[in-house]
Simulated assay, not measured.
Amino acid sequence: MPKLHALELVPDEAGQELVRRDWQALRDAGLPSQLDHRSPTNAPHVTVVSAPELPEAAVDVARTRLGSLLPVRARASGVLLLGGDRVTIARALDLDDDVVRRALAVRVQVPDRQHVGWLPHVTLARRVDRSSVQLALDVLGHRDEVLTLTELRRWDPDLGAVTWLAGH
């Protein structure tokens, strides 16, 4: 699988702490957690688009359409299970329609993007065995939280670098 470049929205410190609390709870329960991802750039985020390459047009549209809108409130409104035998666990995010329209305007600039459509979420754990899903749900609970997305960044896996596009 090729390395994927990404445009991401990042929550403020309070929002990052909420997500890291979930990461820690999963780890404390002996489950996979995004805390296990040791990259220094690993931080709670919402991926707007990811692809093997990001055209500069997409970066420009993201900076203009999304960056100018920050900060944005997002309600973490439930838990998602994505995948097959092993699942990704994530918090689903409710966002204002204008934010969704702007994110879609960015996504259409990227012809080789991963995934059709956009399902805004914050990943909590990857590669969780299906037999552990109920434990993960019990650990995470069902509370709703509000995150404030304050920054827009670009992840370049070829350089191992983050470039801040707005709000930083």
Rank of each mutant, 00 (worst) to 15 (best):
39 S>F: 00
48 V>D: 03
81 L>A: 15
95 L>V: 12
72 V>E: 02
82 L>K: 06
137 L>R: 09
149 L>K: 03
151 E>C: 07
90 A>Y: 10
2 P>D: 14
54 L>W: 00
141 G>A: 05
145 E>M: 02
27 R>A: 15
2 P>I: 02
125 A>E: 08
28 D>K: 14
113 R>M: 08
6 A>I: 03
167 G>F: 00
106 V>K: 02
61 V>G: 04
89 I>Q: 10
82 L>M: 08
33 S>V: 12
159 L>C: 09
65 R>N: 06
34 Q>A: 15
56 E>I: 04
34 Q>M: 14
94 D>K: 07
87 V>Y: 06
69 L>H: 07
112 D>F: 00
140 L>M: 05
72 V>W: 03
8 E>Y: 04
91 R>P: 11
24 Q>I: 09
24 Q>H: 14
100 V>A: 07
156 D>K: 07
128 V>K: 11
9 L>H: 02
74 A>Q: 04
88 T>Y: 11
124 L>S: 06
7 L>M: 05
60 D>G: 15
168 H>V: 10
42 N>E: 06
113 R>V: 00
131 S>V: 11
119 L>A: 12
20 R>Q: 04
95 L>Y: 08
91 R>I: 08
43 A>F: 01
153 R>T: 11
158 D>C: 12
78 G>P: 10
69 L>N: 02
120 P>T: 00
167 G>A: 01
17 E>D: 11
26 L>E: 04
136 A>Y: 05
115 H>I: 00
162 V>L: 12
19 V>E: 06
89 I>C: 07
49 V>T: 02
31 L>M: 13
9 L>F: 01
139 V>F: 05
18 L>G: 01
23 W>D: 11
163 T>I: 05
133 V>H: 02
47 T>W: 05
98 D>N: 11
40 P>Q: 00
167 G>C: 01
50 S>M: 09
122 V>L: 09
90 A>F: 08
119 L>S: 14
67 G>F: 10
92 A>M: 13
54 L>N: 06
21 R>A: 13
23 W>G: 07
91 R>Y: 15
78 G>D: 06
53 E>H: 13
31 L>N: 15
45 H>S: 04
51 A>E: 05
75 R>Y: 04
35 L>S: 15
104 L>W: 12
33 S>M: 14
59 V>I: 13
150 T>S: 15
118 W>Q: 01
130 R>I: 09
23 W>F: 14
134 Q>N: 10
82 L>D: 11
53 E>L: 13
105 A>G: 07
26 L>I: 03
75 R>P: 04
27 R>T: 06
162 V>P: 09
48 V>F: 04
154 R>D: 13
46 V>G: 01
48 V>M: 07
116 V>P: 03
20 R>W: 05
15 G>F: 00
27 R>K: 15
84 G>M: 09
13 E>Q: 10
131 S>D: 15
152 L>I: 12
152 L>Y: 10
144 D>V: 03
48 V>P: 01
130 R>P: 14
94 D>C: 06
109 Q>M: 06
67 G>T: 01
87 V>C: 14
83 G>S: 09
78 G>A: 08
22 D>M: 12
25 A>R: 14
34 Q>D: 03
8 E>A: 13
41 T>S: 10
99 V>A: 09
7 L>H: 00
11 P>G: 01
60 D>M: 05
65 R>F: 04
53 E>P: 14
